[in-house]
Design a protein around this nucleic acid. Structure first.
Lengths: 201, 201
DNA sequence: ATTTTTATGTACCGATCGGTATATATTGAA
DNA sequence: TTCAATATATACCGATCGGTACATAAAAAT
């Protein structure tokens, strides 16, 4: 055990709170004071634990990915014996639940941050990180569709990457609509329309 | 003609520049200094011509709607003798051109602003305005699909509002992907997948 | 018990934020 | 030519921005 005074707050709980603040207000819209107030700590403690604003945001975004993004994405592949269409539906409904959650802000932190990225006030590293996360998701979806095509379970008339981009597009759009306040039932309706149109069979 | 010194800058050109600054950096990410520098005027002139930051943003958003939103939306209804599917394609390609434009920022100002809305730093009036603009577009699309159904030109198996939400979702998603830097061809591919799946016949 | 290490609280830094007071310049009207 | 009205430029306002110096408190290591 290393020497020194013990941290008086729960670091992972603090990170979770910070993530929610960014989720609600965005990167530019969040001030250090917003964060210290929400976390109930003072500035030197925040800087000591998480580094500067950019570093904290990056950490919060990774936390968001592992806490919300990846668990939902898993529904797309597991259980493997469930038909792909049903896995897509469960996955998409998981996204709807996420962007319509009552215990956290509306919309998706990743989508919100992507829209904010590329601006003057956003560090280049954050813009790159968001691009890379988007590309990674795209690749995951592409590989899934490619695999399903190889196994002859879905039609080969549409390229896997096109299916992936398309699905992502619908889900990103749902996140925007959620932020605009559209009701959950409407978003679930979108999923049904999208799924009906999927060139899977 | 009223008395007084003449304005030394073109007001509508200045509004267009201001719109581009908001489009690039968002509401929170744009400072008054950013605006005065881009417009080549000083603060009192900006405040005299456009009011405060919130009022200028509102005006810029309305300008965006009439300058870019409405002309693209028109392609959905005109020419009326073109089949609906082709009008949808032209409309969607117009959106892709908009969000991939070389002479202005990537993505859609309306989508970007919607994602930013609801935050602490965004005035309530702006959040409401964005919600209303979204609802108006939704209604326009719904009425179009309703009309086409009444004329028996598209299938009645899906409700007009669902078709509208779905189409909006895809297009909003395309705007997010554009902001992430995805290439134009990929976005056009999304449109083709979406159109193939539309329950129109 | 002393030293070393880490966390906390306060107080502060220069820079920038949105917004304005004031003085001057320029215009049309009288 | 004077007056009223509007625009410009400079300089400034209090508040907040992101970030840190510094002194103190608490813990482990010696």
């Amino acid at each position: 055990m290393s020497a020194g005074r013990k941290r008086a707050f729960d670091k992972s709980a603090a990170l979770d709170k910070a993530m929610h603040v960014f989720w609600e207000n965005g990167y530019s819209g969040t001030s250090i004071s917003d964060l210290t107030e929400a976390l109930g700590i003072n500035k030197p403690s925040l800087y000591a634990a998480f580094g500067n604003k950019e570093q904290l945001f990056t950490t919060a975004l990774e936390h968001y990915k592992s806490r919300y993004g990846e668990p939902v994405l898993e529904k797309l592949t597991k259980p493997a014996d469930v038909p792909l269409v049903d896995r897509i539906r469960t996955y998409a409904q998981g996204i709807v639940d996420l962007v319509c959650g009552k215990s956290y802000p509306r919309g998706c932190l990743f989508v919100k941050s992507s829209c904010e990225s590329g601006s003057t006030g956003i560090p280049d590293d954050i813009t790159s990180l968001l691009q890379n996360m988007g590309s990674a998701t795209q690749l995951t979806l592409s590989r899934l569709f490619e695999l399903e095509q190889q196994q002859g379970r879905i039609s080969s008339q549409t390229k896997p990457e096109e299916l992936a981009s398309y699905l992502l597009s619908v889900l990103y759009g749902i996140s925007v609509l959620a932020r605009q306040g559209r009701p959950r039932e409407e978003l679930n309706g979108i999923i049904e329309v999208a799924i009906k149109g999927l060139p899977l069979v």
